[in-house]
Design a binder for these strands. Sequence first.
DNA 1: GCAAAAGTGTTGAGTTTACACCCATGA
DNA 2: TCATGGGTGTAAACTCAACACTTTTGC
Lengths: 237, 237
Amino acid sequence: MPTYEHPRPSVTVDVVVFGYDGGHDLKLLLIQRGSDPYQGQWALPGGFVEMDEDLEAGALRELEEETGVKDLFVEQLYTFGKPGRDPRGRVISVAHYALVNLSKHPAAAASDASEVAWFSLDKLPELAFDHAEIIKLATTRLRAKVRYQPIGFELLPEEFTLGELQALYETILGVPEFNKRNFRTRILRTGILEEVGRQQNVAHRPAILYRFNEATYQQLVEQRDSGVLRRALDFEI
Amino acid sequence: MPTYEHPRPSVTVDVVVFGYDGGHDLKLLLIQRGSDPYQGQWALPGGFVEMDEDLEAGALRELEEETGVKDLFVEQLYTFGKPGRDPRGRVISVAHYALVNLSKHPAAAASDASEVAWFSLDKLPELAFDHAEIIKLATTRLRAKVRYQPIGFELLPEEFTLGELQALYETILGVPEFNKRNFRTRILRTGILEEVGRQQNVAHRPAILYRFNEATYQQLVEQRDSGVLRRALDFEI
DNA sequence: GCAAAAGTGTTGAGTTTACACCCATGA
DNA sequence: TCATGGGTGTAAACTCAACACTTTTGC
C-alpha cells in the first residue's frame, strides 16, 4: 500500500518554552497569533514541519523564526492528534518542551508572529487550540522529571549557588520551602556538582559557586543501567 | 497560512505489544510484512491513521485488523519522524506500547498481514524500518514505568498471587531475584492489592490470591497530587 | 555591631536489607 | 514424610527530617 493512497493529515511541531530568571515563578514563552484561526489569541510557538527536517529540528526552527530564541534544551513531550483540535482540518501536533535561562537568552524578539511575550506560568492568558492542555501536560512532566533527572540546570546560569538551585526547585515544584540542610546533603551526595569558586561582593557570607558536571552524571547513569539495582521497586506514589 | 499550502507527511501509528504468560520472559507481538518495502521481514503492527480517528484509536484498530488482538492497555510512547526512516517518503510514526496477559488474549490470529507471532523479547528477528529502535525505547519505558506505577497488573490475570507478581517484576526488570520478604512488605504496604481468595489444588501451601484495586490506587494518586510531598526530590539515579 | 544568607552537627524516628525460620498442601 | 512454594519475625545498617547552631561577608 503506497503512501499516496492515504489521506494525509498536517503535522505541526509546537514548543512549550519554560524560562527562569531567578524569581519566584516560572515563565512561559507565547506568541500572539497574526492570522486566523484564533487571530489575536496567544498560542505556543510552532508551525508545520518541513518534509526533510527532523521533528526536534523543526521545533527549534519554528521557535527561532517566531521568537528569536535559540540554542536551548528541547525534548519531545507528546503528540496531540484528536480530530477536531484544529478548525482547519486534521492537524497532528508533536509537542515539545524546552528549558531556558532568561539571563542567557534575553527578551524574545518577534518576527514572524505579531507579538511575543513571557508570561508567568500561573497567570496565563486564554490560549488558542488545545494549547492549555499541552501546557498542563508539559508542566506535569517538568515537575516529575526534575525530581529524578538533573534537567533543572538548564534553567540556571552556568554557575550558581546551592541557594539558587534550591529556590529553583521550590519554584518548579511549587512547594513553600524545604529544609536547607537536607537539600544540600542530597544534592551534594550525588556528586554531579563541581565547585568552581565563590560569590563576590555580597552582603553576607559568600556562597560557593557550583557548575553541573555532565560527565559525572553520565557515569552515574551508566552505573545504574549496568546493574546494581538499589531498590527493586518503588511504588512511591 | 491554510493547511493545504503545506506538503504533508504520512502519519502512521505503530504498537509495541508486550505479552506475558507467567514464564521467564516477556513476549513481543510482531507481524510479517506482506508487501514492500521490507516484504517478508518482521515489523510492529501498525498502519496509516485515518483522517477522523484519534491516534490511540488508530493504534488499537490497526492492531486488531492485523493481529486480532483487542481490548488492551495502550499508551503513547514517542513519535518517530526522522526523514528517511521509511523508503516510501516522509512517514511519521506515532509509536504506542501496549500490555497484555497472554492467557486472556489467546494466540494472535492473522488477517491483514501474512503472519503474526509472539517472539521472546530477547530473541527478536531482524526488524523492518527503525522498529528495533522503537522496541528498545518501549522496553526502557516499560522498565522505568513499572517501578513507580502499577502497570504490571495489565500483564497478569485478574487474580494472582504475590509469587506471580514478583516473578513478573523480575522478568520485566531482568534482575535475578529479589528478596521475597521485602517485596511483599512493599507491595502490600501500598494498599493497592485486595485479597480475593486462595489457590486451590497446589502441592504446597496455597497462596492468597489478590486483585489490583484501582480505586485505592486512584486515591493514592490524588493524595500525592494534592500535597503532602514526601520527599522533596530524589535524584535516585 | 548588625543583618543577611551560607554552611554544619546532631539526634530520634523511620526505613531498608538481609537472613532465618515456620506453614500448608499434594504426592 | 518429603518437596515445594507461601508466608512471617526481627535485628543491624542505613537514611530522613527537623532543629539549632556557627560562619562570613558588606554596611
